[in-house]
Design a protein around this nucleic acid. Sequence first.
DNA 1: GTCTATAGGTAGATAGAC
DNA 2: GTCTATCTACCTATAGAC
Lengths: 186, 186
Amino acid sequence: MTEAVDTRGRLLDTALGLYAEHGVEGTSLQKIADALGVTKAAVYYYFKTKDEIAHAVIEPGLRDLRAAVTAAEAQRRHGARVDTMLDGLADVIIRHRTLVRLFNGDPGLQRIVEASVREYGGVAERMIAVLVGPEPTPEARVAAFVAALGMSGTGGAPEVADLDDDQLRTALLDAGSRAVGRPRRR
Amino acid sequence: MTEAVDTRGRLLDTALGLYAEHGVEGTSLQKIADALGVTKAAVYYYFKTKDEIAHAVIEPGLRDLRAAVTAAEAQRRHGARVDTMLDGLADVIIRHRTLVRLFNGDPGLQRIVEASVREYGGVAERMIAVLVGPEPTPEARVAAFVAALGMSGTGGAPEVADLDDDQLRTALLDAGSRAVGRPRRR
DNA sequence: GTCTATAGGTAGATAGAC
DNA sequence: GTCTATCTACCTATAGAC
Protein backbone atom coordinates (compact mmCIF):
# COMPACT_ATOMS: atom_id res chain seq x y z
CA MET A 1 0.00 0.00 0.00
CA THR A 2 1.53 3.26 -1.13
CA GLU A 3 0.71 6.78 -0.04
CA ALA A 4 0.55 8.00 -3.61
CA VAL A 5 -2.72 7.53 -5.47
CA ASP A 6 -2.78 4.57 -7.83
CA THR A 7 -2.27 6.48 -11.05
CA ARG A 8 -1.92 3.38 -13.17
CA GLY A 9 -5.23 2.01 -11.92
CA ARG A 10 -6.96 5.36 -12.39
CA LEU A 11 -5.55 5.48 -15.91
CA LEU A 12 -7.11 2.11 -16.79
CA ASP A 13 -10.49 3.16 -15.35
CA THR A 14 -10.35 6.41 -17.29
CA ALA A 15 -9.42 4.63 -20.50
CA LEU A 16 -12.31 2.16 -20.15
CA GLY A 17 -14.77 5.01 -19.71
CA LEU A 18 -13.46 6.76 -22.81
CA TYR A 19 -13.50 3.52 -24.81
CA ALA A 20 -17.18 3.13 -23.97
CA GLU A 21 -17.85 6.64 -25.24
CA HIS A 22 -15.65 6.89 -28.34
CA GLY A 23 -14.41 3.36 -29.06
CA VAL A 24 -10.81 2.26 -28.76
CA GLU A 25 -9.66 3.78 -32.06
CA GLY A 26 -11.50 7.00 -31.25
CA THR A 27 -9.74 7.40 -27.92
CA SER A 28 -6.45 9.28 -28.22
CA LEU A 29 -3.71 9.34 -25.61
CA GLN A 30 -4.36 13.06 -25.39
CA LYS A 31 -7.96 12.44 -24.32
CA ILE A 32 -6.85 9.93 -21.69
CA ALA A 33 -4.18 12.29 -20.38
CA ASP A 34 -6.60 15.23 -20.26
CA ALA A 35 -9.28 13.24 -18.43
CA LEU A 36 -6.64 12.10 -15.96
CA GLY A 37 -5.22 15.58 -15.50
CA VAL A 38 -1.70 14.73 -16.67
CA THR A 39 0.27 15.04 -19.90
CA LYS A 40 0.71 12.49 -22.63
CA ALA A 41 4.32 11.99 -21.54
CA ALA A 42 3.12 10.89 -18.11
CA VAL A 43 0.90 8.28 -19.73
CA TYR A 44 3.93 6.98 -21.62
CA TYR A 45 5.67 6.43 -18.29
CA TYR A 46 3.17 3.65 -17.53
CA PHE A 47 2.59 2.22 -21.00
CA LYS A 48 4.95 2.05 -23.95
CA THR A 49 2.24 2.05 -26.63
CA LYS A 50 -1.44 2.79 -27.10
CA ASP A 51 -2.24 -0.87 -27.68
CA GLU A 52 -0.60 -1.77 -24.36
CA ILE A 53 -3.21 0.33 -22.55
CA ALA A 54 -6.12 -1.40 -24.27
CA HIS A 55 -4.49 -4.71 -23.56
CA ALA A 56 -4.24 -3.92 -19.83
CA VAL A 57 -7.85 -2.69 -19.78
CA ILE A 58 -9.30 -5.94 -21.07
CA GLU A 59 -6.98 -8.30 -19.18
CA PRO A 60 -9.04 -8.70 -15.95
CA GLY A 61 -12.26 -9.45 -17.83
CA LEU A 62 -10.51 -11.92 -20.11
CA ARG A 63 -9.03 -13.70 -17.08
CA ASP A 64 -12.41 -14.07 -15.39
CA LEU A 65 -14.08 -15.30 -18.57
CA ARG A 66 -11.31 -17.85 -19.18
CA ALA A 67 -11.79 -19.18 -15.64
CA ALA A 68 -15.56 -19.46 -16.17
CA VAL A 69 -15.10 -21.38 -19.43
CA THR A 70 -12.59 -23.74 -17.83
CA ALA A 71 -14.99 -24.45 -14.96
CA ALA A 72 -17.77 -25.25 -17.44
CA GLU A 73 -15.56 -27.53 -19.52
CA ALA A 74 -14.76 -29.51 -16.37
CA GLN A 75 -18.37 -30.68 -16.03
CA ARG A 76 -19.17 -34.17 -17.30
CA ARG A 77 -22.73 -33.91 -18.63
CA HIS A 78 -23.74 -31.50 -21.41
CA GLY A 79 -26.60 -30.02 -19.36
CA ALA A 80 -24.31 -29.22 -16.46
CA ARG A 81 -21.72 -27.73 -18.82
CA VAL A 82 -24.28 -25.33 -20.29
CA ASP A 83 -25.68 -24.36 -16.88
CA THR A 84 -22.21 -23.77 -15.45
CA MET A 85 -21.17 -21.75 -18.50
CA LEU A 86 -24.19 -19.43 -18.43
CA ASP A 87 -23.85 -19.00 -14.66
CA GLY A 88 -20.18 -18.10 -14.98
CA LEU A 89 -20.85 -15.79 -17.93
CA ALA A 90 -23.50 -13.94 -15.93
CA ASP A 91 -20.99 -13.43 -13.12
CA VAL A 92 -18.35 -12.09 -15.49
CA ILE A 93 -20.84 -9.72 -17.08
CA ILE A 94 -21.89 -8.33 -13.71
CA ARG A 95 -18.27 -7.82 -12.64
CA HIS A 96 -17.29 -6.14 -15.93
CA ARG A 97 -20.46 -4.51 -17.23
CA THR A 98 -18.87 -1.86 -19.44
CA LEU A 99 -15.99 -3.95 -20.71
CA VAL A 100 -18.06 -6.92 -21.84
CA ARG A 101 -20.23 -4.74 -24.02
CA LEU A 102 -17.22 -3.31 -25.82
CA PHE A 103 -15.74 -6.77 -26.11
CA ASN A 104 -18.68 -7.78 -28.29
CA GLY A 105 -19.14 -4.60 -30.21
CA ASP A 106 -16.20 -2.28 -30.65
CA PRO A 107 -14.13 -3.29 -33.70
CA GLY A 108 -11.09 -1.53 -32.26
CA LEU A 109 -11.18 -3.57 -29.07
CA GLN A 110 -11.73 -6.79 -30.98
CA ARG A 111 -8.63 -6.07 -33.01
CA ILE A 112 -6.62 -5.71 -29.80
CA VAL A 113 -8.03 -8.93 -28.38
CA GLU A 114 -7.33 -10.96 -31.49
CA ALA A 115 -3.85 -9.52 -31.86
CA SER A 116 -2.81 -10.97 -28.50
CA VAL A 117 -3.61 -14.58 -29.22
CA ARG A 118 -1.40 -15.87 -26.42
CA GLU A 119 -3.54 -14.51 -23.60
CA TYR A 120 -6.67 -14.74 -25.67
CA GLY A 121 -6.50 -18.46 -26.35
CA GLY A 122 -9.80 -18.50 -28.19
CA VAL A 123 -11.85 -18.18 -25.03
CA ALA A 124 -14.92 -16.98 -26.94
CA GLU A 125 -14.76 -19.97 -29.28
CA ARG A 126 -14.44 -22.29 -26.30
CA MET A 127 -17.48 -20.71 -24.66
CA ILE A 128 -19.58 -21.13 -27.80
CA ALA A 129 -18.42 -24.75 -28.17
CA VAL A 130 -19.61 -25.49 -24.63
CA LEU A 131 -23.00 -23.88 -25.28
CA VAL A 132 -23.46 -25.60 -28.64
CA GLY A 133 -22.75 -29.07 -27.26
CA PRO A 134 -22.22 -32.34 -29.11
CA GLU A 135 -24.61 -31.58 -31.99
CA PRO A 136 -23.33 -28.47 -33.77
CA THR A 137 -26.39 -27.84 -35.92
CA PRO A 138 -26.83 -24.35 -37.37
CA GLU A 139 -29.78 -23.83 -35.00
CA ALA A 140 -27.69 -24.76 -31.95
CA ARG A 141 -24.84 -22.49 -33.03
CA VAL A 142 -27.15 -19.53 -33.58
CA ALA A 143 -28.86 -20.13 -30.23
CA ALA A 144 -25.48 -20.19 -28.46
CA PHE A 145 -24.50 -16.87 -30.04
CA VAL A 146 -27.85 -15.25 -29.29
CA ALA A 147 -27.56 -16.25 -25.62
CA ALA A 148 -23.92 -15.18 -25.22
CA LEU A 149 -24.12 -11.95 -27.23
CA GLY A 150 -27.56 -11.08 -25.86
CA MET A 151 -26.48 -11.48 -22.26
CA SER A 152 -23.22 -9.58 -22.83
CA GLY A 153 -24.79 -6.75 -24.76
CA THR A 154 -27.61 -6.36 -22.27
CA GLY A 155 -25.31 -6.40 -19.24
CA GLY A 156 -23.44 -3.40 -20.61
CA ALA A 157 -26.46 -1.48 -21.87
CA PRO A 158 -27.07 1.85 -20.13
CA GLU A 159 -30.80 1.08 -20.09
CA VAL A 160 -30.32 -1.62 -17.44
CA ALA A 161 -27.81 0.34 -15.37
CA ASP A 162 -30.52 1.01 -12.79
CA LEU A 163 -30.88 -2.71 -11.91
CA ASP A 164 -28.82 -3.98 -8.98
CA ASP A 165 -26.33 -6.80 -9.50
CA ASP A 166 -28.54 -9.63 -8.19
CA GLN A 167 -31.61 -8.59 -10.20
CA LEU A 168 -29.63 -8.24 -13.40
CA ARG A 169 -27.71 -11.47 -12.90
CA THR A 170 -30.86 -13.52 -12.36
CA ALA A 171 -32.74 -11.94 -15.27
CA LEU A 172 -29.78 -12.40 -17.65
CA LEU A 173 -29.43 -16.03 -16.64
CA ASP A 174 -33.16 -16.69 -17.17
CA ALA A 175 -33.24 -15.10 -20.62
CA GLY A 176 -29.97 -16.71 -21.74
CA SER A 177 -31.07 -20.15 -20.53
CA ARG A 178 -34.35 -19.84 -22.43
CA ALA A 179 -32.49 -18.78 -25.58
CA VAL A 180 -30.42 -21.99 -25.61
CA GLY A 181 -33.53 -24.05 -24.82
CA ARG A 182 -32.82 -24.81 -21.18
CA PRO A 183 -35.40 -22.74 -19.25
CA ARG A 184 -34.73 -22.51 -15.53
CA ARG A 185 -37.21 -23.69 -12.93
CA ARG A 186 -38.47 -21.04 -10.54
CA MET B 1 -29.54 4.43 -65.08
CA THR B 2 -26.20 6.03 -65.89
CA GLU B 3 -23.27 4.62 -67.77
CA ALA B 4 -20.84 5.67 -65.08
CA VAL B 5 -20.39 3.35 -62.10
CA ASP B 6 -22.32 4.38 -59.01
CA THR B 7 -19.43 5.93 -57.12
CA ARG B 8 -21.60 7.24 -54.31
CA GLY B 9 -23.06 3.79 -53.70
CA ARG B 10 -19.63 2.15 -53.86
CA LEU B 11 -18.39 4.74 -51.39
CA LEU B 12 -21.08 3.80 -48.87
CA ASP B 13 -20.36 0.08 -49.27
CA THR B 14 -16.65 0.71 -48.82
CA ALA B 15 -17.25 2.85 -45.74
CA LEU B 16 -19.44 0.19 -44.13
CA GLY B 17 -16.75 -2.43 -44.64
CA LEU B 18 -14.11 -0.20 -43.07
CA TYR B 19 -16.43 0.68 -40.17
CA ALA B 20 -16.79 -3.03 -39.43
CA GLU B 21 -13.02 -3.38 -39.36
CA HIS B 22 -11.89 -0.24 -37.57
CA GLY B 23 -14.99 1.36 -36.10
CA VAL B 24 -16.44 4.67 -37.27
CA GLU B 25 -13.97 6.83 -35.36
CA GLY B 26 -11.09 4.68 -36.55
CA THR B 27 -12.03 5.10 -40.22
CA SER B 28 -10.46 8.15 -41.84
CA LEU B 29 -11.51 9.73 -45.11
CA GLN B 30 -8.07 8.81 -46.38
CA LYS B 31 -8.73 5.11 -45.79
CA ILE B 32 -12.10 5.35 -47.53
CA ALA B 33 -10.58 7.21 -50.48
CA ASP B 34 -7.68 4.74 -50.78
CA ALA B 35 -9.98 1.70 -50.65
CA LEU B 36 -12.11 3.34 -53.33
CA GLY B 37 -9.14 4.28 -55.49
CA VAL B 38 -9.80 8.01 -55.49
CA THR B 39 -8.52 11.00 -53.53
CA LYS B 40 -9.95 12.55 -50.40
CA ALA B 41 -11.09 15.53 -52.41
CA ALA B 42 -13.25 13.26 -54.55
CA VAL B 43 -14.91 11.94 -51.42
CA TYR B 44 -15.70 15.51 -50.41
CA TYR B 45 -17.52 15.96 -53.68
CA TYR B 46 -20.18 13.53 -52.47
CA PHE B 47 -20.26 14.33 -48.76
CA LYS B 48 -19.56 17.60 -47.00
CA THR B 49 -18.39 16.07 -43.73
CA LYS B 50 -17.22 12.79 -42.26
CA ASP B 51 -20.38 12.45 -40.14
CA GLU B 52 -22.52 12.84 -43.25
CA ILE B 53 -21.01 9.62 -44.65
CA ALA B 54 -21.78 7.65 -41.50
CA HIS B 55 -25.26 9.11 -41.52
CA ALA B 56 -25.85 7.95 -45.10
CA VAL B 57 -24.44 4.51 -44.32
CA ILE B 58 -26.90 3.81 -41.52
CA GLU B 59 -29.94 5.42 -43.12
CA PRO B 60 -31.31 2.39 -45.06
CA GLY B 61 -31.08 0.10 -42.02
CA LEU B 62 -32.73 2.67 -39.80
CA ARG B 63 -35.57 3.07 -42.30
CA ASP B 64 -36.25 -0.65 -42.48
CA LEU B 65 -36.14 -1.03 -38.69
CA ARG B 66 -38.55 1.87 -38.24
CA ALA B 67 -40.98 0.27 -40.67
CA ALA B 68 -40.77 -3.04 -38.80
CA VAL B 69 -41.46 -1.38 -35.44
CA THR B 70 -44.42 0.53 -36.86
CA ALA B 71 -45.90 -2.68 -38.27
CA ALA B 72 -45.55 -4.37 -34.88
CA GLU B 73 -47.14 -1.45 -33.03
CA ALA B 74 -50.15 -1.72 -35.33
CA GLN B 75 -51.06 -5.15 -33.97
CA ARG B 76 -53.81 -5.27 -31.36
CA ARG B 77 -52.82 -8.15 -29.04
CA HIS B 78 -49.53 -8.22 -27.16
CA GLY B 79 -48.63 -11.68 -28.43
CA ALA B 80 -49.08 -10.62 -32.04
CA ARG B 81 -47.08 -7.43 -31.43
CA VAL B 82 -44.12 -9.43 -30.12
CA ASP B 83 -44.29 -11.99 -32.92
CA THR B 84 -44.51 -9.29 -35.59
CA MET B 85 -41.65 -7.34 -34.01
CA LEU B 86 -39.27 -10.32 -33.84
CA ASP B 87 -40.20 -11.34 -37.37
CA GLY B 88 -39.52 -7.85 -38.68
CA LEU B 89 -36.29 -7.56 -36.71
CA ALA B 90 -35.04 -10.83 -38.17
CA ASP B 91 -35.75 -9.51 -41.69
CA VAL B 92 -33.88 -6.27 -41.03
CA ILE B 93 -30.91 -8.17 -39.61
CA ILE B 94 -30.72 -10.42 -42.68
CA ARG B 95 -30.90 -7.43 -45.03
CA HIS B 96 -28.25 -5.45 -43.12
CA ARG B 97 -26.03 -8.04 -41.45
CA THR B 98 -22.91 -5.93 -41.00
CA LEU B 99 -24.64 -2.68 -40.18
CA VAL B 100 -26.86 -4.05 -37.44
CA ARG B 101 -23.92 -5.44 -35.55
CA LEU B 102 -22.16 -2.05 -35.55
CA PHE B 103 -25.41 -0.38 -34.60
CA ASN B 104 -25.36 -2.26 -31.31
CA GLY B 105 -21.68 -2.22 -30.63
CA ASP B 106 -19.59 0.58 -32.09
CA PRO B 107 -19.65 3.63 -29.81
CA GLY B 108 -18.73 5.85 -32.74
CA LEU B 109 -21.73 4.77 -34.77
CA GLN B 110 -24.04 5.12 -31.80
CA ARG B 111 -22.89 8.70 -31.38
CA ILE B 112 -23.82 9.39 -35.01
CA VAL B 113 -27.21 7.76 -34.60
CA GLU B 114 -28.07 9.66 -31.45
CA ALA B 115 -26.86 12.95 -32.90
CA SER B 116 -29.49 12.76 -35.65
CA VAL B 117 -32.53 12.48 -33.42
CA ARG B 118 -34.90 13.60 -36.14
CA GLU B 119 -34.44 10.53 -38.30
CA TYR B 120 -33.68 8.36 -35.31
CA GLY B 121 -36.96 8.94 -33.49
CA GLY B 122 -36.12 6.53 -30.68
CA VAL B 123 -36.77 3.48 -32.84
CA ALA B 124 -34.74 1.22 -30.53
CA GLU B 125 -36.74 2.33 -27.51
CA ARG B 126 -39.99 1.70 -29.37
CA MET B 127 -38.82 -1.80 -30.32
CA ILE B 128 -37.95 -2.62 -26.70
CA ALA B 129 -41.30 -1.23 -25.52
CA VAL B 130 -43.14 -3.55 -27.91
CA LEU B 131 -41.13 -6.56 -26.75
CA VAL B 132 -41.53 -5.73 -23.05
CA GLY B 133 -45.29 -5.37 -23.26
CA PRO B 134 -47.78 -4.06 -20.70
CA GLU B 135 -45.89 -5.31 -17.62
CA PRO B 136 -42.46 -3.64 -17.63
CA THR B 137 -40.87 -5.78 -14.91
CA PRO B 138 -37.06 -5.85 -14.72
CA GLU B 139 -37.17 -9.47 -15.94
CA ALA B 140 -39.27 -8.55 -19.00
CA ARG B 141 -37.00 -5.61 -19.84
CA VAL B 142 -33.86 -7.74 -19.61
CA ALA B 143 -35.45 -10.50 -21.71
CA ALA B 144 -36.37 -7.95 -24.40
CA PHE B 145 -32.82 -6.64 -24.56
CA VAL B 146 -31.29 -10.13 -24.62
CA ALA B 147 -33.53 -11.09 -27.55
CA ALA B 148 -32.94 -7.89 -29.54
CA LEU B 149 -29.21 -7.52 -28.86
CA GLY B 150 -28.61 -11.27 -29.14
CA MET B 151 -30.31 -11.51 -32.52
CA SER B 152 -28.61 -8.36 -33.82
CA GLY B 153 -25.15 -9.28 -32.60
CA THR B 154 -25.43 -12.83 -33.91
CA GLY B 155 -26.70 -11.75 -37.33
CA GLY B 156 -23.57 -9.67 -37.85
CA ALA B 157 -21.11 -12.16 -36.39
CA PRO B 158 -18.56 -13.50 -38.88
CA GLU B 159 -18.99 -16.97 -37.34
CA VAL B 160 -22.48 -17.31 -38.86
CA ALA B 161 -21.58 -15.79 -42.23
CA ASP B 162 -21.63 -19.28 -43.76
CA LEU B 163 -25.37 -19.72 -43.11
CA ASP B 164 -27.73 -18.76 -45.90
CA ASP B 165 -30.39 -16.12 -45.33
CA ASP B 166 -33.31 -18.49 -44.68
CA GLN B 167 -31.40 -20.70 -42.26
CA LEU B 168 -30.11 -17.74 -40.29
CA ARG B 169 -33.46 -15.97 -40.25
CA THR B 170 -35.31 -18.99 -38.87
CA ALA B 171 -32.67 -19.79 -36.27
CA LEU B 172 -32.50 -16.17 -35.07
CA LEU B 173 -36.28 -16.03 -34.78
CA ASP B 174 -36.41 -19.28 -32.79
CA ALA B 175 -33.73 -18.22 -30.32
CA GLY B 176 -35.11 -14.70 -29.91
CA SER B 177 -38.64 -15.98 -29.38
CA ARG B 178 -37.45 -18.38 -26.69
CA ALA B 179 -35.50 -15.59 -24.98
CA VAL B 180 -38.65 -13.49 -24.53
CA GLY B 181 -40.62 -16.55 -23.42
CA ARG B 182 -42.64 -17.15 -26.59
CA PRO B 183 -41.17 -20.34 -28.08
CA ARG B 184 -42.30 -21.03 -31.65
CA ARG B 185 -44.05 -24.19 -32.68
CA ARG B 186 -42.31 -26.33 -35.28
C1' DG C 1 -16.39 14.44 -61.39
C1' DT C 2 -11.87 14.06 -60.06
C1' DC C 3 -7.58 16.11 -59.40
C1' DT C 4 -3.26 18.84 -56.91
C1' DA C 5 -2.00 21.62 -53.28
C1' DT C 6 -2.25 23.23 -48.91
C1' DA C 7 -4.00 24.99 -44.58
C1' DG C 8 -4.46 24.15 -39.70
C1' DG C 9 -4.81 20.83 -36.33
C1' DT C 10 -4.01 16.54 -33.79
C1' DA C 11 -2.17 11.86 -33.72
C1' DG C 12 1.51 8.55 -31.53
C1' DA C 13 5.86 8.59 -29.84
C1' DT C 14 10.62 10.19 -27.97
C1' DA C 15 14.37 13.09 -25.48
C1' DG C 16 15.74 15.07 -21.70
C1' DA C 17 14.94 18.53 -17.61
C1' DC C 18 13.43 18.51 -12.81
C1' DG D 1 6.77 10.33 -11.53
C1' DT D 2 5.60 14.13 -14.15
C1' DC D 3 6.94 17.79 -16.92
C1' DT D 4 8.19 20.77 -21.55
C1' DA D 5 9.45 20.52 -26.08
C1' DT D 6 9.66 18.44 -30.26
C1' DC D 7 9.51 15.04 -34.29
C1' DT D 8 7.04 12.92 -38.00
C1' DA D 9 2.94 11.37 -39.70
C1' DC D 10 -1.72 11.69 -40.36
C1' DC D 11 -6.17 13.95 -39.85
C1' DT D 12 -10.41 16.91 -41.64
C1' DA D 13 -11.47 20.29 -44.63
C1' DT D 14 -11.01 23.94 -48.31
C1' DA D 15 -9.53 26.35 -52.75
C1' DG D 16 -9.13 26.16 -57.23
C1' DA D 17 -7.24 23.82 -61.74
C1' DC D 18 -8.71 20.65 -65.42
